[in-house]
Amino acid sequence: MTQDIFLLIEHIQGQVSDISYIMAAAARELAQNEGDSVIGILFGSGAEGLKDSLAVDKVIYCDHPTLSEFTSDAYKRTLISLLEDYSPRAILFGNTTLGADVSSSLAAHLKFPIINSCLKISDSGGIISQICGGKIMVDSQLADKTTLITVNPGGYKPEEGQSSSSPETITFSPPDLENLKVQLTQYIEPEAGDVDISQEKILIAIGRGIQTEDNIELADELAELLGGAVCASRPVIDQGWLSTSRLVGRSGKKVKPDLYLCLGISGATEHIEAITDSKTIIAVNSDPDAPIFDIAQYGIEVDLFDFIDPLLEQIENAKND
């Protein structure tokens, strides 16, 4: 086993995803000793140029038409083949729709230990993970063999993993990629929504705490008075109460408003990683321990149903003054 740290570069439709840069930053922290390299794994078709902005020492590049876009089966097969030639200290994967499709099944296949949801690397090279929706932290250490790690966004900024110098490329020949069991047939773009929440300056965000579809009216009223738009966490969207275009979080949109006022949102990792660029976050929640209070600038611990009416009334008064 070498002491090199590998990471699987993620890209979708020709765009390198932010998580790739975040992993590059984490990998750099993990490569503790002089001489330990950070090595990106890049699969694609005519996509070698995607390595250019990544702060890694080298890139192992595998080119094949079938690898042009991500599919789990082709990626897994190629990774298994690659790991016959290489034996790194650790391999980082995004805890994302791409990374999570292959990391655990690769771990099972190669009997490599795996650590979930790494947020940061400690000064001593330990892994700091965040589980249970952000309510529990775990400090752990790499096992005594190649260890796989899934990385959550939030611990490092993408800029920390970017570089202007292009890393050296090592090419890798693809394995047999015939008879794959998973094929990508098409991407379906979301229907153009009524509003683009990623561009709104004021967002009223509602979570499961809103309880019923009828109560959404309260958020609408608030948004209208403040000149903003309503967005939501996953459970509200899953109920079908708002369209997917309003979803904020890992599987929805990233937002960067001046004001993110959230009502009845607990602050799970998958939600807050998409709101950290907001200028001001104000959280209303009846649970004093809700993780949302850890990232909000202002917190209000009340039952939102007792709070909204006086708030609406006072805003109206303030506007009439």
């Binding site: 650590i115 250490q141 202002y298």
Partner: peptide, 21 residues
């Protein structure tokens, strides 16, 4: 035992929590 040694599990230590109104 997964081979990974867990040193510690703990509740998040919060650097700057929201100012509560």
């Amino acid at each position: 035992d997964s081979g990974v040694v867990i040193d510690r599990m703990y509740l998040p230590e919060v650097a700057d929590r929201a100012e509560m109104l």
